[in-house]
Amino acid sequence: MTCEEFERVLPELGDGHTIEQEAHLKSCSACSDLVADLNAISQQARLLQGSEEPSPWVWNSIEVALQQEGLIRQPHLARSQPPAPLLGWKLRWLVPAAAMFLVAFGVLMFQRGTGQPPVAEQQPPPVGVETAGLQPMAGDDLQLLKTVGERMPSMRAEYEANLRSVNAYIRDAEQSAHSDPNDEVAQQYLRNAYEQKAMVYEMALDRSLP
């Protein structure tokens, strides 16, 4: 089998190869490199599924539309619960503060061309919070999860998954920005990543409050 013949049948190939194709791959490094690359692209692509988080405003708009169309027939349970004034009073200032801090930090990183090491690297991980295969969470994140867990236990896992995801996004964006500080796209990704984290904080604290 020649390379041209192999490339002609390549679009039709699934995971398996015929004996003739296997023999060609063993003897031809160009074709075996090609197959390895295409497999690597395909495998990495699967990890992109569901990796992006929509802004909280999307749900707000859907909810308003559902109410206007009369599809929602019951009041929102969480919002009909009696408030806990002390907790609310203590945390209400954190909503804009946390959001502003995270966006400002992202903008600062953007302006400095990521000359500073990421915050996560400067802080030792809290003891006992690392789980196998997962990065440890910073103290602020753990505090947020604690607050969410106290007010909305059923939503804690959702917020933990969101925080882990957005932290991974930030790490990726930081790596990309570090490797090429002049890459404007990477800087934009980094800024988006911090904005997303600010949104998660804002949404979590907003929902935790009466």
């Binding site: 690597a40 692209i41 790596q175 990309s176 990477a186």
Partner: peptide
């Protein structure tokens, strides 16, 4: 390329 394709 294999092994060097990152998400970004």
């Amino acid at each position: 390329l294999a092994g060097s394709v990152d998400r970004m």
